[in-house]
Design a protein around this nucleic acid. Structure first.
Lengths: 224, 224
DNA sequence: TAATAAGTCAATCAACTGACTTATTACGAT
DNA sequence: ATCGTAATAAGTCAGTTGATTGACTTATTA
């Protein structure tokens, strides 16, 4: 009756249905686009005769999207914390870059083949109707701010503005390149990198270069 | 009667309606999301009493999206060709990076404030239903391959795979950061960069660093 | 000025969507 | 074991969608 947050007093049956809906939704969202898939289609794909199964268990589509994000957030956050813990030299930019990239690629690699979460995530960032859904949600991770802070200490000569700018760049780079790799794996098309590990290496290289790039001083206003 | 491709024998009236629809669609797409806006809403916003105005002039939503892309492609392509022409030293990576970034930012800056095209573009890349709509369209630009080739000659030590990878990275970086800047301008929120020129400088810096980043050699397969 | 075409409008269609209602089934607490 | 309730199924509802239709208006041409 009431929308359950997680596993309050939900029965085994309801739990099965919930994960079936989450899995079906994530797949359909990645393959056809979040806003192109109706709750009905998701209910059908999840094997539910009831056409309002999504509404019953999650509420609106935005709530469902949030629930999917939360499902992945915890394991990724765990991997991130472990990566920070396992660092050998916190003064090395590359290690921080690996902490930023590794957890997501590792999670996607362990999510089976093909995975769908990266393509799903890319849509959340690009679509204005979905953007606000996770605006603060994914950004307010404890380990994430620790990593951003780690970059800060490695590159003290960078201004705060450039630092914010490049962390945003890194995020776009990671999410979209993971989506790209995921799509290549799903369609068995050619890809520059053979595995998730290799893709992570390429991304880490790029982010190190990105952060270390010289900053061009902006000329005072010369044009109106 | 028949859907017109461009400006074959279209009357002044039809031309007005066409540009009104294109402008309204681009705005609504950027603000609410491409797949969240119906053709009816676009017709209304364009001041057309007819609910089928979009269908009459453009066909399906995909055709409309393509038409919007084509509208911007030409001026951007022109700016890109001019930027290549104006290069002083083709051996400098930064100049090629500027050729990649400058035309889009300049076009967005001249598109009035706020612009909507960058946010629109970001959706086309992320949404699977729209991705194929412009898959080859925007990539098969003559000046674009010239720029990619320019990078190639500047960095001959880079493998072909890494080169392809980093050009894709650069594209994601440019489109998404322009969308980010555009969104900031539209909502008058804080932004790391004050102007489109400044944003272009930040992007150019980043892309130079990205391309120059050392490539980590992949270890032979050590894990199953 | 008459004739033809292009563009616009208003009404309508079937299909689909989310939400609602009712009935049946399965699970868990007692 | 049973009883109450959560969960599922099935049917219905109004609203919206893209598409089609025919009538009307405007522009071009003969």
């Amino acid at each position: 009756m009431v929308i359950m947050s997680s596993q309050d007093g939900e029965t085994r049956r309801a739990g099965h249905t919930r994960v079936a809906i989450l899995a079906a939704a994530e797949r359909l969202f990645a393959e056809r686009g979040v806003m192109s898939v109706s709750n009905r289609q998701i209910s059908d794909a999840a094997g539910q005769g009831n056409n309002t199964a999504v509404g019953y268990h999650f509420g609106t589509k935005h709530d469902l999207v949030r629930a999917i994000v939360r499902t992945h957030e915890e394991p990724i956050e765990h991997l991130r914390a472990a990566a920070i813990e396992a660092m050998s030299d916190p003064t090395q930019i590359r290690e921080w870059a690996h902490c930023l990239v590794g957890p997501l690629t590792a999670h996607l690699a362990s999510a089976g083949s093909p995975s769908w979460y990266a393509r799903f995530l890319a849509q959340l960032i690009a679509d204005p109707a979905l953007h606000e859904t996770i605006a603060d949600e994914a950004l307010s991770s404890a380990s994430l701010v620790a990593i951003v802070d780690g970059f800060n200490r490695c590159l003290p000569q960078l201004s705060a503005e450039v630092h914010v700018e490049r962390s945003i760049m890194a995020r776009h780079l990671i999410v979209n390149m993971c989506a790209e790799h995921e799509r290549a794996l799903a369609t068995r098309k050619a890809t520059p990198r053979a595995s998730w590990d290799a893709a992570a290496t390429g991304l880490t290289d790029a982010i190190v270069g990105l952060y270390q790039a010289p900053v061009t001083a902006l000329a005072p206003i010369t044009k109106v």
